[in-house]
């Protein structure tokens, strides 16, 4: 078992209901548990299917069992399937050293669709995120997923991207094995490609 670079390693996975972030956090949790770490994955679901924000927390330690909620402003990394959600969570878990990986594809809240609220311009959103973290990875995860034929794969693309950073004590192979535990082999080819695309995206960034 490799020593953790960060202990506890606290990763927030966020997005909008239906984007598959709960699945992503489960896969990550399973991979880390299999690698021998103490893992707690906290999920919040309320009305998650119906357009609300959904956040899960993957907490990893080599020692004590951790609670389902991480302390405020101490996340190691924020992985977001939607850029505005990344900014929302920086308000709760952010600090100068946090790493942010976000999909660049906006999903407009209902109030924005209705014209009652504004969604920030992408450039402004990106600059704001950049100013609130140590390193921002602004990644076209949905576009990459669409190249594979299904927007839902954006979560796996981001997992791949996360594997390309020096944060986790495990690599893409372990994450792939965990995916294999959850999906039938028939779906694995696409998942492998999505992981690879994510890895390539951070390498290029």
């Amino acid at each position: 078992m490799k020593a953790l670079k960060y202990d506890p390693l606290d990763i927030v996975v966020t997005g909008v209901g239906g984007q598959g972030n709960v699945l992503a956090s489960q896969v990550l949790g399973l991979a880390l548990l299999t690698a021998g770490y103490e893992v707690t994955v906290g999920e919040t679901y309320g009305l998650s299917q119906r357009g609300g924000s959904v956040t899960s927390q993957v907490r990893v330690s080599s020692g004590p069992v951790l609670g389902p909620m991480m302390p405020d402003h101490r996340a190691t990394a924020i992985v977001s399937l939607e850029p505005l959600e990344a900014l929302r969570l920086l308000g709760v878990y952010g600090h100068p050293g946090v790493v942010v990986l976000t999909n660049d594809r906006p999903l407009r809240p209902l109030g924005v669709l209705a014209g009652e609220q504004l969604y920030p311009e992408p450039a402004e959103l990106r600059a704001t995120l950049e100013s609130l973290c140590a390193k921002l990875y602004w990644l076209p995860a949905t576009a990459a997923a669409l190249e594979l034929g299904n927007h839902i794969l954006a979560n796996v693309v981001l997992l791949g991207a996360l594997c390309g950073l020096d944060l986790l004590p495990i690599g893409a192979a372990e994450v792939e094995a965990a995916l294999g535990d959850m999906f039938p082999e028939s779906k694995m080819a696409l998942n492998r490609e999505a992981l690879a695309k994510g890895l390539a995206l951070v390498r290029a960034a």
Partner: peptide
């Protein structure tokens, strides 16, 4: 920065 973040109504 939270001023930029519209709430997500369900």
């Amino acid at each position: 920065a939270q001023a930029l973040v519209a709430p997500r109504q369900v």
